[in-house]
């Protein structure tokens, strides 16, 4: 079982590092459906995996300047309280309700990812005039130049950050599926920087929730060890291996995978 958990962790690490997501949307269904864990234990383990993925991937993205630390930190001030609130609410809900909510979330994410893959958005142009405190830049090896961007509509992004935090606490996911689109569509941050900034935030969001689960005894250490080690190995591998792959095709494949897992989990709730 330890080997299987390590492989699951490594898979989540590879997949998560490619999209700026923590990988909880893949880990929780696997832990519940394949390993037969209770939902709360699966969520606790997933949160630990998200922290692992975030810390390992962010250590690279921060050094490269891809992650906008000021923007991530500012949004995190809204996300962390939402995460703690969500975690406390989750301990008062039954596993079936959480599973139903998660299956619906998966289907919605699948549609969003498919749309994104089929209609990739254009990068935002460099800002004109004086730069604001949250604006950023990074060197893009693909184009061989520095990309400068301005951060817009911060209040709207802050609202979405609260929702992302609550989602993390309730369902054990990092909230990256909300953060990346919010950063890109609301704030106007280029996709690469949005994914890196989201990843930078994920660890802090998940840590607030994970600490609550940890203190309640839901985090099983004998299962956490192979999972987290797998995530660390997979994330390191994913950063290198997936850098050159085309995001559109990868996202489309993920959309199909997420839809499959979501439908399977929905059917397991016995609603139909």
């Amino acid at each position: 079982m330890a080997v299987q958990l390590f492989v699951l962790g490594a898979s989540v690490g590879v997949l998560g590092s490619a999209f700026g997501l923590g990988g909880g949307i893949f880990a929780i269904p696997a832990l519940v459906l394949y390993f037969g864990l209770p939902m709360h234990a699966a969520v606790a383990l997933s949160l630990a995996m998200i922290v692992a993925a975030s810390s390992s991937v962010a250590s690279v993205n921060v050094e490269r300047g891809l992650a906008n630390m000021k923007l991530g930190l500012s949004l995190e001030a809204f996300t962390v309280p939402g995460a703690a609130l969500g975690a406390l609410l989750a301990s008062r809900l039954d596993g079936g309700t959480l599973r139903l909510m998660f299956s619906i979330l998966l289907c919605a994410v699948s549609v969003a990812m498919a749309r994104k893959a089929l209609r990739p958005g254009a990068e935002h142009p460099a800002p004109q005039g004086p730069r604001g405190p949250l604006d950023g830049f990074y060197f893009d090896p693909a184009s061989g130049r520095e990309v400068h961007y301005a951060v817009r509509r911060f209040p709207l992004a802050a609202l979405s950050a609260i929702g992302a935090g609550a989602l993390s606490g309730l369902l054990g996911v990092g909230g990256g599926i909300i953060k990346v689109p919010a950063l890109r569509l609301l704030c106007g941050v280029p996709l690469k920087a949005a994914a890196a900034t989201s990843n930078f935030m994920l660890g802090m969001t998940a840590a607030a929730s994970a600490a609550v689960y940890f203190s309640k005894g839901y985090l099983l250490p004998e299962l956490a060890a192979p999972l987290v080690l797998g995530v660390l190995a997979g994330a390191a591998l994913g950063i290198k291996a997936l850098a050159g792959l085309r995001a559109e095709k990868l996202e489309l494949a993920f959309a199909g995978l997420v839809l499959f897992v979501g439908v399977k989990m929905f059917l397991s709730t016995g609603v139909l």
């Binding site: 995190e76 250490p221 004998e222 060890a225 987290v228």
Partner: peptide, 27 residues
């Protein structure tokens, strides 16, 4: 843990605790 030692869970918990502390350290 694999060798049957009772210290396995303690080390694993310490590892998880260190991991969960990295976001705090970051902030």
């Amino acid at each position: 843990f694999a060798s049957g030692s009772g210290l396995g869970p303690a080390f694993s918990l310490a590892g998880v605790a260190v991991l969960l502390s990295t976001p705090v350290l970051r902030a």
